[in-house]
Simulated scan of single mutants.
Amino acid sequence: MRLLAIDCAASLCAACVYDAAAKRELGRQVLDLGKGHAEHLMAVIAEALKASAIQYGDLGAIAVSVGPGSFTGLRVGVSTARGLALALKIPAIGVTTLEALAAEAAAAFPDRPVLAALDAGREEIHAALYDEMSSLTYGPAVITLNDAVAMATENSSVLAGTAARQIAISAGRAFETGPETATADIVTYARLAAAKGEGERPKPLYLRGADAKPQAGFMLSRLRS
């Protein structure tokens, strides 16, 4: 099966084609945008398909990062993946950024627990804990920095994600660390999705609401009957 993977969870707008049978990447395109995923994603996908010498009709599944991550980026990535899957009559498979980061840390430090942790601001952490077999044992959830420190220390975890350094500093000790990025390499999402197979339709993983709220001056008064 050839699978298209999409990631818009952070600043990257990324796509790759992965041959699940041969377990190898066929081609990719990655842009570091910050914003503007909606305007560039279809072109990025087209370039990944071109690099792979693959047509849409050759695909057997669509993989997509579902977060936690950018509120807008996740909506763009997931809606595109679901739309393509519907049009092509193939499954769409969601993979969280936390499990992808944990998978990369586990590859570097086999048979160790991994705490994947992303800085969510407000001294909060988006976290998920995986055991020595890479099975999820906690989360994904929003926890405090103190709770993240306690979890990492108690489990002697390898750390991954943007909050890794913050946790180590707060703990006052060193931890073995995998990727300290906001998202994993695009092929990691492809590999994990290929191993998962078809499941529920992907949807964005929002562990808390969007930060943007309407300004009070723009709120309409409730009409009285």
Rank of each mutant, 00 (worst) to 15 (best):
67 G>H: 02
83 G>W: 07
191 R>I: 09
61 A>M: 07
86 L>W: 05
188 T>H: 04
68 P>L: 15
4 L>E: 12
39 E>R: 06
120 A>R: 03
33 L>T: 13
179 P>N: 13
207 L>K: 15
20 A>W: 00
66 V>L: 04
159 L>H: 09
156 S>C: 05
92 A>C: 08
110 P>N: 11
63 A>Y: 10
76 V>S: 01
155 N>Q: 13
29 Q>F: 09
27 G>I: 04
134 S>N: 14
96 T>I: 02
30 V>A: 01
69 G>R: 02
72 T>N: 03
129 L>S: 08
139 G>T: 07
204 P>Q: 03
151 M>D: 01
141 A>H: 12
214 P>F: 06
184 A>V: 11
222 R>N: 06
159 L>Q: 04
84 L>D: 05
48 A>T: 04
193 A>M: 10
151 M>W: 10
140 P>M: 08
217 G>Q: 10
16 C>M: 03
185 D>E: 14
6 I>H: 00
93 I>R: 08
220 L>A: 14
97 T>K: 03
19 D>M: 14
223 L>N: 11
43 A>S: 13
225 S>I: 09
60 G>L: 08
213 K>D: 01
99 E>W: 06
86 L>V: 05
196 K>Y: 12
30 V>N: 00
215 Q>A: 13
78 V>K: 00
81 A>P: 13
5 A>Q: 12
220 L>N: 13
67 G>C: 07
113 P>V: 13
118 L>E: 00
141 A>E: 15
148 A>T: 12
81 A>N: 09
93 I>D: 07
182 A>C: 07
28 R>N: 09
23 K>N: 11
83 G>E: 07
74 L>S: 02
19 D>E: 10
191 R>M: 11
90 I>T: 04
220 L>Y: 10
189 Y>F: 15
158 V>C: 03
172 G>C: 07
177 T>V: 14
157 S>A: 15
48 A>M: 03
170 S>R: 12
173 R>N: 05
34 G>V: 12
216 A>Q: 11
205 L>C: 06
61 A>G: 09
8 C>Y: 10
81 A>K: 03
169 I>N: 14
40 H>V: 11
63 A>W: 09
55 Q>M: 08
195 A>H: 02
184 A>L: 12
131 D>A: 12
31 L>P: 01
158 V>A: 00
15 A>W: 08
163 A>M: 08
117 A>L: 04
62 I>H: 07
67 G>I: 01
197 G>W: 07
77 G>Y: 00
44 V>C: 12
17 V>P: 05
182 A>D: 15
121 G>C: 05
136 L>R: 15
16 C>W: 13
7 D>N: 15
179 P>M: 11
77 G>A: 11
210 A>G: 05
6 I>M: 03
177 T>P: 09
98 L>C: 09
46 A>Y: 05
37 H>E: 07
133 M>R: 15
7 D>I: 01
33 L>D: 08
28 R>K: 14
127 A>H: 11
126 H>K: 04
65 S>I: 01
90 I>M: 06
107 A>T: 09
205 L>Y: 07
147 D>P: 01
6 I>F: 02
142 V>I: 15
138 Y>S: 13
221 S>R: 14
127 A>L: 06
206 Y>F: 14
175 F>M: 01
81 A>F: 03
61 A>L: 06
15 A>D: 12
11 S>N: 08
160 A>G: 02
